[in-house]
Design a binder for these strands. Structure first.
Lengths: 218, 218
DNA sequence: TAGATTGTTAATCGATTAACAATC
DNA sequence: TAGATTGTTAATCGATTAACAATC
């Protein structure tokens, strides 16, 4: 790949937010918006919005602003929301269940191909119509099926092993809910979601005054 | 609050990662580590690690490195993991259930005080020993009970209203799983977890080559 | 045409990395 | 003491913000 430059991750992570706010505008029948108006709603700067969007193209018009519907649909394409994805969930615990039952994801183009677990009690049953298979068959399954995304909801103790099997099986990307950090490589892209880390960050914010008082020099 | 400066959010968000890696070292009976060794494990730079830690104090020793156990315990305190927190969950759907049943959180000092939902079928039943109450009583409950953290797991349509009630009720912080962005204010600190946004970011990474090809100028 | 607002270049700010004197 | 490694200052890098000419 020899592009001038990749778009920075900071920008990418803001795109879903633009998409949400543009969706709200559409729901309210707003047809055009300037970077200035949008910046007020999102509390960002107009400059940032224009810079962000101009990574991908000239979607606006001088003196007019942006056509909400057009911009919405461009971002939809950029975020790959016009495609469908073959997804497996590994680990049928509470979080695995929640993800399988979260209807928003199906709306976003997610198609669940299978679930895997170790628990003999669960194997053979279904969640939201998708069969739970024995995790022993994960490697075999991947040989026969092309999978875009593997969602890892297994305990830390088995995370490394499951990641290995999944990567070897040619899965293209991993949505990782385990506490193990997985790295992006040329073969597999990863999005780590560490809920415990997020909670600890909240704890810190909650105690910030006390901590600054105690630890940080004046 | 008149500190020299607050510690930047980028640093705070790395602390849980340090905490995890130091925990692993402890489990492996490693007693000391240099910023260089630690940087290899975490793939960061030694400079970043030393800079990050020095926001809070001089925890190392020249020529020696860091005492793993000591550093672990300092970060534990900084992250507020030596305290307990009174927590309510609003919304007893799939995600609410997953959070209530996630035993790791109890280990981290989370004590669930109550769950709230609108569903008459659910009200009066329990999840993991915690009673589900009618969301109509949320305001009243907060008048009588001091709550550190409210976990919002309600649909987008009721997110704004629930946030309002919770903030008015004097809750100190919000762990927000709704698609609505909530802002940090002087009264309430917020940690937004937008799982849909995270999934869209993964979609983007998966399609990156295609998108750069189509949208980004060479 | 005049006003508005973009796209884009330039300036600023903050975060990361490098360098090195201090010191265990 | 000599070697190692920190804490901290200085340099670099990247991201955000400001400014403004281009143009609808």
């Amino acid at each position: 790949m020899d592009y001038d430059k990749k778009v920075s991750l900071a920008v990418i992570k803001r795109l879903p937010k633009y998409y949400r706010y543009l969706g709200d505008l559409l729901d309210n029948n707003v047809t055009r918006i300037s970077s200035k108006e949008l910046s007020k709603k999102m509390n960002a700067t107009p400059s940032q919005i224009r810079q962000d969007l101009n990574n991908f193209g000239c979607f606006g018009q001088q003196g007019y602003g942006y056509d909400v519907s057009l911009l919405y649909s461009e971002i939809k394409t950029i975020l790959g929301l016009d495609k469908t994805y073959s997804v497996i969930v590994v680990g049928a615990g509470n979080l695995g269940n929640a993800i399988l039952n979260y209807t928003q994801f199906q709306k976003r183009g997610v198609s669940f191909a299978a679930i895997f677990d170790t628990d003999a009690q669960k194997i053979g049953t279904t969640i939201n119509g998708v069969e739970i298979k024995d995790i022993k068959n994960l490697g075999n399954f991947l040989e026969q099926t092309s999978v875009d995304i593997a969602v890892l909801c297994v305990p830390k103790s088995s995370a490394a092993e499951v990641a290995k099997v999944v990567i070897k099986g040619g899965v293209k990307s991993i949505w990782n809910f385990t506490p193990l950090d997985l790295e992006n490589t040329k073969d597999v892209v990863v999005e780590n979601v560490h809920l415990s880390d997020s909670l600890m960050t909240l704890f810190y914010k909650l105690n910030e005054g006390f901590i600054l008082e105690r630890y940080v020099k004046k």
